[in-house]
Design a binder for these strands. Structure first.
Length: 325
DNA sequence: CGAAACATCCGCCACT
DNA sequence: GTAGTGGCGGATGTTT
């Protein structure tokens, strides 16, 4: 069984610790999903206090942490404080041993202090992005994404983006169908990550442009059933195509065409989850010209064909119902 | 399935 | 000099 170890510090942040516990610690075998072995590892002698007023006993320590397949570094308590040396050494050992290491929120500062982010792309909470880039110049900080997957090292943005990253790990380990079961059980959106995508654009644009881009996004989402083109969006924003595309990339983190496609696939996912309409009709409602077109993009973004996705979502959802061949 | 028509996107560059 | 704009060409991908 895949083991996931979570580092726990004194004055830990409750939510960021709870996220990996919820994703990796809950038994979902009755829903046909495999389980993880979740190990909480104290970095300092206990008891450990949450910043919000409770304390916990944590059963394992750093010697267990280094042996895990996956290590989660939740938000670090104070970005101005250097993390304890034993933790940094443990991360080095684990990294050399091939462990996968993921940080949530300000946990990126721990990975950066350990030197694990040197020469890599990474992200953190947008409030800390500038500080991370300034303090660790060898890290390429990208504040516009929910998370960055660099293979052995992964980092995620603020608070709730940790859920996206943890579900991404589930998808990597067991496939999209299983990740969907986890998401459904947690009542969060099944993740919008595509097959080869190295990062996920921020759900909400950062609006460097006074809102032209995000207004165009809203306008397009309301008309997702129409076969709009990128030129249509630019026209609505009142900008030349080139300028619109450039601003879109700067604030949305992706290209207009890719974004539009993704919204169409999201709409199709929702329709498949909540209606019995034939795929043919759904493709019309989501702005795809033909069902063939929907199938191509759906498969690329979600990982399974529309029919299998509906199957997995509607009935009890067995992991094998919709596997990627 | 493949070919032709069409859309997207990015480097380049002149221009403000 | 620096920063942003927007048209163009063509490689690449999408739709028919």
């Amino acid at each position: 069984m895949h083991t996931v170890a979570v580092a726990v510090y004194d004055r830990f942040l409750a939510f960021e610790l709870a996220v990996p516990c919820e994703v990796f610690g809950v038994d979902r075998s009755t829903m046909g999903a495999p389980n993880y072995r979740l190990l909480l590892c104290r970095v300092e002698p206990g008891p450990l206090h949450a910043k919000v007023g409770y304390s916990i006993e944590v059963p394992y320590d750093l010697s267990t942490l280094v042996e895990a397949d996956t290590i989660i570094i939740p938000a670090w308590r104070d970005i101005d404080e250097r993390p304890p040396e034993p933790l940094l050494e443990a991360l080095h050992d684990a990294y050399r041993g091939g462990a996968r290491i993921a940080s949530l929120c300000s946990g990126a500062f721990v990975l950066a202090a350990a030197g694990l982010l040197d020469g890599r792309r990474a992200t953190t909470h947008w409030m800390f992005a500038e500080a991370l880039a300034a303090r660790f110049p060898r890290v390429q900080v990208d504040p516009n994404v929910l998370y960055v997957d660099e293979g052995q090292i992964l980092t995620s943005a603020g608070t709730a983006a940790g859920i996206d990253l943890c579900l991404h790990l589930v998808r990597l380990d067991y496939g999209q169908a299983v990740a969907n079961i986890f998401a459904r059980r947690m009542v969060v959106a099944p993740h919008r990550d595509g097959g080869q995508a190295q990062y996920v654009p921020a759900a909400v644009a950062l609006d460097a442009d006074g809102g032209a881009v995000s207004r165009a996004m809203e306008w397009a989402i309301e008309r997702i059933d129409e076969p709009l083109t990128v030129q249509n969006l630019a026209d609505h924003a009142g900008l030349p195509l080139r300028t619109f595309a450039r601003q879109f990339r700067a604030s949305g983190g992706t290209t207009p065409g890719q974004w539009l496609l993704r919204q169409r696939v999201h709409a199709a996912q929702r329709a498949l989850e909540t209606t019995d309409a034939p795929v043919e009709r759904i493709s019309q409602q989501c702005g795809f010209g033909t069902a063939a077109s929907l199938r191509v993009h759906f498969r690329r973004v979600v990982g399974v064909p529309p029919s299998a996705y509906r199957q997995a979502f509607r009935h009890g959802a067995h992991a094998g119902d919709a596997t990627v061949p």
